[in-house]
Amino acid sequence: MTHPGWNAFSFDGIGTSWEISTPEELQEDVRAGLLGVVEDYDRSYSRFRDDSLVSALARGPGTVTLPAGASELEGLFKTLYRLTGGAMTPLIGGSLERLGYGHDYAVRPLGHPVPAPRWEDVLVWKGAVVSSSAPVVLDIGAAGKGQLVDLLAAVLRGTGITEFLVDASGDMLHSGTEPLRVALEHPYDPTQAIGVVELHDGALCASAANRRAWGDGLHHVLDGSTGRPVETVVATWTMAATAMEADALATALFMVDPKVLAEEFEFSWLKVYSDGHAEYSAGFEGTLFS
């Protein structure tokens, strides 16, 4: 329960658990609308289902037309691809599959890590239209969950609801007059928090290397230039106006110095390293326990 007396609408979507909290119970047609948006998103972007649009690109060269929101992903991924020197890329899917995080969740490496193909070599992405000159495993996961949070928030706003929290298992967007206190989960111990942040009219996203880990050092945050898991950073948190940006920036913080990202994005950040020390921007000042 987000605030006392609020209602929660819970469901599963794109491989995670969702909870949408509102002061009044959501009408049946609003719920159906929300679930429809989730299903559309999954059918477009999931690399885990054969009937998705991106799966067509994995089968061979070709062109697909994604939903309209794809142009926002395009801009975001292009900027982050540039700022991270290719480390953060939507072409990381093949590298993930190579390490066992694919279709069948084999969760064992299929071979040595492989770097992602270079964007400029295989992919032309203009707005909603994406063409590949080779089979590519497009993975927009770094920003996709966040974008879906934003899309569901838009559905709520479209029906006149202004007070809500959309929570996709820890990546969330808050709207309303009353701020929400959110615990920052301890990266080594899920029964503990390392701090509390006050979220008000904005998005908070987290990324952690151990969230979907399945073997020694094999986790889902990969460096696209080597195809290997990123080292040293254990967990990141970001706050931004949209969940799509916050989500993507939380991943980008694993690859690049926050100063580089701060040159082009308005956001707050917190990084926790494997030795237990933390670094943060002004927006996270005073949130950590001491």
Binding site: M172, V182, E185, S207, A208, N210
Partner: peptide, 13 residues
């Protein structure tokens, strides 16, 4: 701590 939401990794133990 008085919170209703948690943001983090949900580390598998």
């Amino acid at each position: 701590i008085n919170v209703t939401k948690v943001a983090g990794s949900s580390l598998t133990s």
